[in-house]
Amino acid sequence: MNIKKQFKEGLITNNPVLVQLIGMCATMAITTTLFNGVGMGLSVLVILTCCNVVVSAIRKIIPDEIRLAIFVVVIAGFVTIVDLLLQAFIPALSAALGVFIPLIVVNCIIIGRAEAFCQKNTVGASFFDGIFQGLGYTCVLIVMCVVREFLGSGRFGGGLIDVTNGFRFTLDGTGGGIQIFPADYGASILNLPFGGFITLGCLIALMQFALKRSKKKKEEAEKAPQDEEKEVA
């Protein structure tokens, strides 16, 4: 397992949302402003990395029969810690994400990685797997937010960026974002649940298109030298 390969898998070829098709509830529900997306993505990244490390560290001492129950307890523990810390230090994010922070417990990404990866790999590999899978998830959230916010209300970086008194980042979710075109011309339907379904559907379709294309190219590249050989013969 080398890090480069893990990086590519987490972000592209085995992206949790776009390829493994898991953890979609939150992806569609909270991606209305960049603030929510980045906050949710980073929360999942932290929880996933911690859980991966702990699960792979204790993988040899836990009995096989109750491993799922133990995974769930470990995950719920970390989720509660992040939940409490958010409530204490970034209350705006906690209020915006609401019930979706505790619901990270049942996010298939985390239990899926614990079951499929950390059980069989070392602590180090699991740590990087957590970071890269988390990054892959965060990237998808960010793309969803940017697309929905831009087309829906003509903004970029809502909640996270404030430009009223010069450019600055707001961590309390109060920033109005950069208005690119007047909100009245936006397709506000993209801010509704409908927009979540459609945007994610198109993103996955785009991913399938790209993967299929790169696969075809590879096959052609493999085929090409053979054809040349034939011609020579």
Binding site: P63, E65, I66, I70, V73, A76, L84, Q87, A88
Partner: peptide, 29 residues
Amino acid sequence: PKLTFILFLICAITAGILGGINELTKDRI
């Protein structure tokens, strides 16, 4: 019994850690 004990132990450790974190963040929340 052994399995129950292990599960209970892990729950207890988790609850203990959470209790600590809660104590630290309670006032701030």
